[in-house]
Each structure stands twice: as C-alpha cells, then as structure tokens.
Design a protein around this nucleic acid. Structure first.
Lengths: 358, 358
DNA sequence: CTGAAAGCGCTTACAG
DNA sequence: CTGAAAGCGCTTACAG
C-alpha cells in the first residue's frame, strides 16, 4: 500500500534505473521483455501509481479535454455530453466540464488563461464562439472542435438546419396546410444559448413557403425563449392572429411541449384543429405524440468528440465540417387541415376543461 | 505574447528572484507591496501565465474536483450537476466529470488509480457507493461528499425520502382514496442507477397505508426501470389487477409521465378515474399538470458541493448529514375518488381517441 | 523583505 | 537494452 512510492522506490527494488522503470511502465519500445515484466510486477506489488502531475510537467500533455457548454439542464446537452464523454473516455481522455451559462462566466473563460496545463483540447458545444474567442484558444495551442455552428478553419459538426426546417414545413404543405406559422428561439439577452441553428430553421421555413408560392406573413413568425413557457406564450400569440394558422412548426421540442399545453388549455384539438411539428426528437416527444425532426443528438456528440480526438492526434489542423442530416419522425400531432367550413373557431367550440366541470 | 515565458523570464525582467515572483503572483504575504505591484505589472505585460502543471507538482494540489454520476441524460443529474458545478467554480475549483453508466466503467473507476493528481476531492451523485468503493477513495487521501444516500463517516446530503413517500400517500388518503398503488424504480441489472431513495419511498408508502389501517396488497406494488416506458408498462400492469387502484404514487416523475400516457391511451381520466402523484417536480411536470413531490434538486446539488468544499478546506473529516425536505406540489392530477357507483370501469366507458375518430 | 537551493515526480535525448 | 543527467515550471523551508 505504498501510497507514497515513486519511480525511485520501484527502481531501487527492481535494481534498475528510473529511466528503465519509466519505459517499462509506459510500454514504450526499447526495453527487454524480461525487464519490463519484472518492473511491472514489482510496481504492482508496491501498489505504485505514477504521479500524473509529474508526467504532465515532463510531457506537457494532460490527457484531458475541456467540454464547454452553455447549459447542463437542457435535455439536448445531457445527451450530447454523455455521447461525447463516452468517446473521450474510450480515447483515454478525461473531461473537464465548463458550463458557461451567462456572459460573465463566458467572458472569464475565454479571456482568462483557463486551459493550458489543464486540457489538451476543447470541445465547444452550441456556443457560437466568436472569431476572437476561437483565436484566444488556438493561440494557446489548443486543438478545437465545435458542435452546432460552422467556423472557418475549425473542425465542426452541425445539422442541416435549413434543410431540416424546409422538410418540416414541406410535410405540413404536403398535408394541405396553407397557413403555417413558425415559432422560433429568441436569443435572450445575457444568455449564451441560441444562435445559428435556430436562425437556419427559420430560413428553411421561409424557403418552403416561398417554394410553395405562399405569402410570407410576418405575424406568423414569433420568437420566444427556448422553454416550455416560451412555447406556450408564443402559441398564445398566434391564437390572437386575425387569421390563425392551421399548423405550426416549432424550432424546439421543449417549446412544442408548451405549444401543446396552450392548445390543450384552449380546447383546440391536435391535430384536428392544429398541426404541430417540433424539432429535436426529445425523449418525451414520443409520449406526447409529437411529430418532430430528429437530428441524431447522440451522434452529433460522438462525432464532435471524434473530430477533437483526430485534431489532438494530427499535427496540422484539419477543417472537416461534418453535416448531420435531420429526418422527420411522424407521430400524431400532424394531419391534414380540416375542411374550410369547420376551420373557424366559433365561441361554442372554444371551451376548455375548466368549463367542462360546470 | 510570450506563450513560453516562465517564472524565470519574469524574474529576470523584474530583476528579482523566482521566489519573489512566485510570492508576488500568488498574493502571499511576506513581500513588499511595491515589489509585488512591479512584478505583477511585468508579468502582465509579458502575458505570463503560471504553468498549472508546475504548481501542481510542487504543491500537490490540483484545485479540481471530480463529480461522479450514474447518468448525464436524466433531467435530475443535469440539474444537480449545474448547481454543484456552479458552487465549485465559485470556490475556485474546476470539475472533472465521470459518467459511470455501467458496472464496467464503474469498476474501472473505483479500482483504478483514477484520481490522485487529477482531483483533490470527489462528489458522488446517487451511486450508492459500497464501503469498499468509498474506502478506495479515502485511502487515496481524497475528501468526499455523497448525494443521495447516507454513508457512515462521509458528508452526505439526502432527501427525507421515506417521509416524502408517506406524505405523498397521505395526500391521497386524505382525498379519500383507499386503493392506492405504488410504482417503484427497479434496479436494472448492470445499471448503476437506482438505490436507496426509491426503496425509502416504498417504505414511506407502506407506512402511510399501515397508519391508515389499510390492507397491504402486494399486487399494488410494481417495479420497472426509471423511464417513461417503465412507467407506462407499470401502469398497464396495475390496470390488469382484479380490483384496480383509484390512485397511484409513482417514485419518479419520468415514470409518472409514462403512467399518464397509459391512462390517456386507455381513456381513463386523470384525476377523475385515477389520481397520480409523482416524485421530482421535473421541469415538465407543470405542463403535464402532475401533482408531485418536490425535493429541491438544485439545492441538493449546491449543498453537496458545499459539503465537499468544506471537506477540502477542513483538516479532519466532518460527518454532516444534511437532510433536504420534500414538499408536495399540488396540481391537477389528484382529486377525491369518484363515488363508488361510478368507480367501476364499464365497457362503454372504456374508449380512447382511436375509437373517437370512427 | 528577499534570494539560493532543494524538491515535487516524472520523461527523454544522449552516451554507452 | 540500459543508465546518468538534465529538464519540465513551479513552491517553500531556510538563511540572511
């Protein structure tokens, strides 16, 4: 139980030099099999464990990566983190976790000398790093990989968000909808969430509408924060439109859950009176019977981690951008619009469960 | 941009010894204010950043803690991790994340010499560490804190799960229910989730029933894995009982969501025909109108982190066990049972939305 | 208040 | 294949 034994102890007991001990224990070539075995046996008997601090100082390598995320409490990031972490662990890297939830901690992270000596590389999730932020990291000699946006000169994995948005809306068009709204993610002030993917989804929505030669109605585009509450109030706003939509494409499943809540509360049946398409394929979407766009969240995390591992091993920077496709998952929240005559919401139809109890 | 500058460079430029540089930069006493200022200014101009590896080797401290969790993809752990991570960051510690999802990686973690040199302490979330596992860590000189169970000699934070279970069931009893079932979490083979808290909740359920002098019916206790699917099938089993319950207490909200799904599918109205109480106060519980037990998940994470910080600073091991109370959050999934005459499920009542479309 | 020196525990050319 | 020695970049008694 020699908690305090060092290479020297092992060397002495084995009757060899510390160089030999070092070589034996790291399985490097240039040492006889016999010596290696003997040293390894003695080290084991001694309960010797090489000091990480020592080898880090000598090699300059930490065998650790930093994963930077804007949030831990959202489903998406838990999935991504689990997948990425698993890949990193297999590759022999520890993971250091940085949640940069607000601008203050974000600034401290990128300005400060946070990482050299702690991590060999950085995986940035969904943060939309600025060029200056990326440069601050590369200047420190840290290989990077980015998930959720495309950055010049940096390995990225991202989703075909624009195509995905178009696909989602086409599904609604193909069902016969003509009044289709979009509920998007608003970049909240002081929040590090949000960014490019939501914006791309909006563009895809517009693409599909214009390809179908449908009018672009500004009042059909509403934006709220990416929560169920945000989705709820976004849907409520749409219900106040002069001509309400018959379908809505929602940029995230969590918001879509809120949308479903509002509709249920208003007594508007889904998909009878309103079709809803979400985005994420959240673990609870199946239960809520939500039609949604799946974008292989787990795969995104794993691929991003693999890009980082390659970057750590390669000498020069690669510039791969890996595109992950999104696919429609059809469930019960989408259907053709009702024939025109029943599509108006008359007062007698607008009831909810509170009035039912009367 | 002297990426490669070391104490020596700074010492030379400042015309002092490296000892003085070291003292100036770490704000230790025993140095004149004037010298300190000058050295700090020169270091800043040089863009000098102390090498972490060097100081770790010299001090033996890493200013890093390991957080060990059985899962990242569950809502609960995301919340706990966010709260704990934030406390650790404030206290000046980095966090190293270990997801020990299966027995194999769990074994590797506790057997292997994973942590010394990487972390100064360990926060164990919900894993129900064995005495041997805890000893393996303390033997390495690592202060610990544990969340979700009580371990002799280790600082812990845990929930009054048994009381909480009793409270939940009492709520149902007080509404007039007499046929109350329990849906519990089954410890899946090869899975590191589960453990003591679910077992305590079961005991609380039994407490409440026996205090109310109600029969204990073994067929009213069913166990499944802690997922919506598990909840769904557990509820389905209960629906096959000779005399189905009128209320069910579910050991987790995620399972309760599945329960609600099964009931909706079977056309059994909640809370009219069946009352449901969950456990967690999951972020989606409000949306689904689920009555549930809140156990201050965020607070649990923060308190556990605080215990670890104290353990890291204190010389001797404290043995605090911090009990977090759970409180009932009443929503729309609980109500008095229907009068006896309407409580039987006749064929005409048992419809679902599929038949509605006919 | 300041500095010279030893030490933390490894790794790695270099020489043999 | 093996070893003596320098070096990685700090910190910290110890002496002054």
């Amino acid at each position: 139980m020699g908690m305090t034994s060092s290479v020297d102890t092992v060397a002495e007991l084995a009757g060899v030099s510390v160089s030999t001990v070092s070589r034996a224990l790291r399985n490097v070539p240039g040492i006889s099999e016999e010596t290696r075995k003997r040293v390894q046996r003695i080290a084991r008997e001694l309960g010797y464990v090489p000091s990480i601090a020592g080898s880090r100082l000598a090699t300059g390598k930490t065998r650790t990566v930093a994963i930077v995320t804007p949030s831990l409490s959202k489903w998406f990031f838990g999935q991504v983190l689990a997948a990425a972490g698993s890949v990193m662990r297999e590759a022999g890297y520890d993971v250091l976790l940085y949640e940069l939830a607000d601008e203050a901690t974000r600034g401290r992270f990128f300005d400060g000398p946070a990482l050299p000596g702690r991590a060999d590389g950085v995986l940035i999730l969904a943060l939309q790093p600025t060029p200056a932020e990326l440069e601050a990291l590369t200047e420190q000699g840290l290989p990077l990989a980015v998930l959720g946006s495309e950055q010049p000169g940096v390995p990225c994995v991202r989703v075909e968000d624009r195509d995905a948005g178009r696909s989602a809306v086409r599904h609604l068009l193909n069902l016969g909808h003509e009044r289709i709204a979009f509920i998007g993610i608003e970049q909240a002030a002081g929040n590090t969430l949000g960014g490019v993917p939501p914006a791309q989804r909006l563009l895809g929505y517009r693409d599909a509408l214009s390809e179908a030669a449908l009018d672009h109605r500004p009042e059909y585009e509403v934006f709220e924060e990416n929560t169920t509450a945000g989705g709820s109030s976004a849907m409520a706003r749409l219900l106040c439109a002069e001509i309400p939509p018959t379908a809505v494409f929602v940029a995230s499943d969590e918001m879509a859950f809120g949308v479903l809540g509002t509709l249920r509360g208003a007594g508007i049946s889904v998909p009878g009176d309103m079709s809803v398409v979400g985005f994420d394929n959240h673990e609870l979407s199946g239960l809520l019977d939500l039609t949604t766009m799946d974008h292989s969240v787990t795969r995104q995390g794993a691929e991003a981690a693999r890009l980082l591992v390659s970057a750590l091993q390669a000498s020069e920077t690669s510039e791969t951008t890996l595109m992950v496709p999104a696919t429609l998952v059809v469930r019960g929240s989408t259907a053709p619009p009702r024939p025109l005559r029943t599509r108006t919401y008359s007062p007698t139809k607008t009831h909810n469960h509170l009035t039912e109890t009367a």
